[in-house]
Design a binder for these strands. Sequence first.
DNA 1: CCCCAAAGCAAGCAGGTGCTTGCATACAAC
DNA 2: GTTGTATGCAAGCACCTGCTTGCTTTGGGG
Lengths: 205, 205
Amino acid sequence: MSIVSRDKLLEAAAQVFAESGFRGATTRRIAEVAGVNEVTLFRLFGSKSQLLTEAMACVHPQGCVCALPAQPGDVEQELVEWSSSHLAFMRGISTVIRRTMAELDEHPEMRSVIAEAKAPYLHQLFEYASKVRPPETAADADMLRTACAMLSSSIFADAIGRDVVPAAYPEPESEAARKYVEVFLSFLGIQPSAAGASRRAVGVK
Amino acid sequence: MSIVSRDKLLEAAAQVFAESGFRGATTRRIAEVAGVNEVTLFRLFGSKSQLLTEAMACVHPQGCVCALPAQPGDVEQELVEWSSSHLAFMRGISTVIRRTMAELDEHPEMRSVIAEAKAPYLHQLFEYASKVRPPETAADADMLRTACAMLSSSIFADAIGRDVVPAAYPEPESEAARKYVEVFLSFLGIQPSAAGASRRAVGVK
DNA sequence: CCCCAAAGCAAGCAGGTGCTTGCATACAAC
DNA sequence: GTTGTATGCAAGCACCTGCTTGCTTTGGGG
């Protein structure tokens, strides 16, 4: 029985934190949302900080399932799929990301939520891109790395910024990932495929 | 005499807000930082909300001075300068941006801080880029717009994300803007100039 | 010298917040 | 049936927070 209350509290904590931030997430509120008594919260987690910390640790692992293949095949499709799932995932936890980034100075233990959600993906992308178009010089590799960072940044900014300044991002929302990838591929020297274009025209996913 | 206290309070409010967010910015703390009595705060602004709102309105106007020229000349240099100043400006207010984005749901009146700081710049960039390489088709224009959004997003993400996940952004920090612009220009079909390369090599600004 | 606006100071109030204590209740195992 | 564990409930404590009140101090203008 203990485990049920624990999970309910963890979930409620994450939700209330996303809505109201650390200071705004009162223990009374969390307990109410979880449907358990406030005292139970302290009995199970000891303190508000510990509950929140544990709750944040649970946010990421359910994360992005899509990975780039080890050997590139249909580059455009693979990248679009990767970017889309990455974007969708980050949009899903965008409020948590925003709050965590804002309160990092006060609660450094939450750095991992962001760091783990971002760093590995960039590396993965760079590895993949390097196979698609192996850089010839150091400067070339540097530019490729920058281009990867830009694609990654675009997805990140779109995920957390679109509801704030919609005009700053490509429309429609559902095609944004594809458009980012097309620009990225064009940089790599690959023309968007006819398949991609036709799929786009008919609006098929 | 009144004006002095007002300004001190506005400045202190912005600083404390950046440090601690809306809830964390207590009137006692703001007054302390401003070096005035807490009662004075309420006499001059009526309430905490009003003080904070007024303080936020003062953040942006001191903003980015650099504008792209109406007619492109040295494209690379102009874009690098524009991006650098834009990036520097956003880095300067990055904590305020993060907090504002996180607390937008609770305090919608602060939306303008972000919106005004971002939307116009993207438009400006697209106008400029359209002159450099006039798009031939609608699809072409769409891609150009996306590329502009990506450059803008990269600058945005760099400004607010670099201290959180440094590994996700180009090194060194001081050359980041230039690198973004180089990738962007390469997309436009313009090779980075020898001047840019040599400047880069010697590390001249 | 007096006046008045701006600011300080001390105190407090009502409500919220993290956390504790003491006790009652349910329910499963032995 | 007894024991033990998990949970609920009521109350409260110490502290913080936005905001108010009543009073004194200060300093420049008439």
